Amino acid sequence: MPPQFPLATVGALVTAPDGRVLIVKTTKWRGTWGVPGGKVEWGETLETALKREFQEEVGLDLLEIKFALVQEAVNDQQFHCPAHFVLLNYYARCESTQVTPNEEIVEWQWVTPQEALDFPLNSFTKLLLEDYQQRFIRV
């Protein structure tokens, strides 16, 4: 039986020193690509949860963490099971591009933000990328 309340989750679009961003394909989002992240544990701050999730999933240390946006997923068909998530999204950067994936990460790519939009992204990551481009990329 699913929880009777929404679950808080954190995730981040992370930029490498060369400007590329990390996208990942996980076992949880039905073949779509997204960003690393996960559930906030009891008593954990959002930033601590984000740093922990990135260490666990891809082995990266995050720097310059900045809040991006909030999204909500209520029994979204893109997720592998019924769930109600409050998705707290961030932007951050990292010094390394050396990914050490855990068992949840099927594939990963460092790509430009524009190239990322060519991947089959989950809708939440697509919105985060579009927001990032509007805020930070000048054409």
Rank of each mutant, 00 (worst) to 15 (best):
Met1Leu: 08
Pro2Thr: 07
Pro2Phe: 11
Pro3Tyr: 02
Ala8Val: 01
Val10Phe: 01
Val10Glu: 00
Gly11Lys: 01
Ala12Met: 04
Leu13Lys: 02
Thr15Met: 07
Ala16Leu: 04
Asp18Gln: 09
Gly19Phe: 14
Ile23Phe: 08
Thr26Gly: 13
Lys28Phe: 14
Gly34Ser: 10
Pro36Cys: 12
Gly37Met: 02
Lys39Ile: 07
Val40Glu: 00
Gly43Lys: 01
Lys51Ser: 12
Lys51Tyr: 01
Phe54His: 11
Val58Gln: 05
Gly59Ala: 06
Asp61Lys: 00
Ile65Tyr: 06
Lys66His: 13
Phe67Leu: 10
Phe67Glu: 12
Ala68Trp: 10
Leu69Met: 15
Val70Trp: 14
Val70Cys: 06
Glu72Met: 12
Asp76Ser: 12
Gln78Thr: 12
Phe79Cys: 03
Phe79Trp: 15
Cys81Gln: 14
Pro82Ala: 03
Phe85Cys: 09
Tyr90His: 14
Cys94Trp: 00
Cys94Asp: 03
Glu95Trp: 14
Glu95Asp: 10
Ser96Ile: 12
Ser96His: 07
Trp108Phe: 15
Trp110Glu: 07
Thr112Gln: 11
Pro113Met: 10
Pro113Gln: 09
Asp118Asn: 14
Pro120His: 12
Pro120Trp: 04
Leu121Met: 10
Thr125Gly: 05
Thr125Ala: 15
Lys126Asn: 08
Leu128Ser: 05
Tyr132Val: 06
Tyr132Ile: 05
Tyr132Met: 05
Gln134Pro: 00
Ile137His: 03
Arg138Lys: 15
Val139Met: 11
